[in-house]
């Protein structure tokens, strides 16, 4: 196991509010790291710190370092556009862009200047296959992505970031609005994808972390309470707050 993301003394602020408090956390290559915790515990903020999406929010400020493949991503000379391609992100609500299924997948590659039709066709097919959507949409790639069901839209969003050929997949409660069958399909895809990608999965469904995460981290009030192998966290948590949360005493 090698460390792909190394977080050290990382704090984050929105205006005067401290939303992450001195995090130290490693993400190993080709693992699924699950992050659980109640609402407003800083899970999503942490995820958006990894690809610097927080930069878009006014009053966002950080301390500490996050190194991805050995490089501090908050260095002033880091190419943020490149960084975001490397760490693809799926959001809680699927947001298909108002264009065809094909154009949604081809959006990222086109941004990067890829215009070769045969190459794009191959990328679209490959991404949709990996995202587990190809069989359902292969005959209607030109129809609007807005016509897909919620579960299909979320798999489209997953496929869309795979087309970026990222190294990391960040997922922010990706199944929170989906039915159990759609959730199962996404989880199946994730298990297959971790062979090629490093995955960070934020979820408000602790059972989901138990099902798919190799290691699980528990966040509370912007702090990392503990992190460890999923089986250990769920059977023998070291911290009583983790135990309380998992037993449903709060959250």
């Amino acid at each position: 196991m090698t460390t792909a993301i190394r977080v050290r003394g990382f704090s984050h602020y929105f205006g005067g509010e401290r939303t992450l408090r001195g995090l130290d956390l490693d993400v190993e290559r080709n693992e699924i790291l699950g992050i659980i915790g109640p609402a407003r515990s800083g899970k999503s903020t942490f995820l958006c710190a990894l690809n610097r999406l927080n930069d878009l929010i006014r009053g966002s400020r950080i301390e500490g370092t996050i190194s991805v493949d050995g490089r501090n991503i908050y260095d002033p000379d880091v190419d943020v556009v490149e960084l975001r391609r490397k760490l693809g992100m799926v959001f809680a609500t699927p947001v298909p862009l108002p264009r065809s299924i094909y154009e949604n997948i081809a959006f990222g590659p086109r941004l990067a200047g890829s215009h070769d039709r045969a190459g794009l066709d191959a990328t679209v097919k490959d991404s949709l296959e990996k995202g587990g959507l190809w069989a359902e949409v292969r005959d209607r790639l030109d129809s609007s992505a807005l016509k897909l069901s919620g579960g299909q839209q979320q798999r489209l969003c997953l496929a869309r970031i795979l087309a970026l050929k990222p190294d990391f997949i960040l997922l922010d409660e990706p199944t929170s609005g989906l039915d159990p069958i759609s959730t199962m399909k996404i989880e199946d895809s994730l298990r297959k994808l971790k062979k090629e990608y490093t995955i960070v999965l934020v979820t408000n469904n602790t059972k989901q972390a138990a099902r798919v995460a190799d290691r699980t981290a528990f966040f509370l009030n912007g702090e990392l309470v503990e992190v460890g192998p999923t089986a250990r966290i769920f059977t023998a948590p070291a911290d009583s707050r983790t135990d309380d949360y998992l037993r449903g005493k709060f959250g």
Partner: peptide
Amino acid sequence: PPGFRTVSFSLGSTKWQMVTRVVLPS
């Protein structure tokens, strides 16, 4: 929708690409 902008950025667009390819067509 603000989500279009976030998605566009997260797919590796510059601000100008986001404006011309996502915001203006919509």
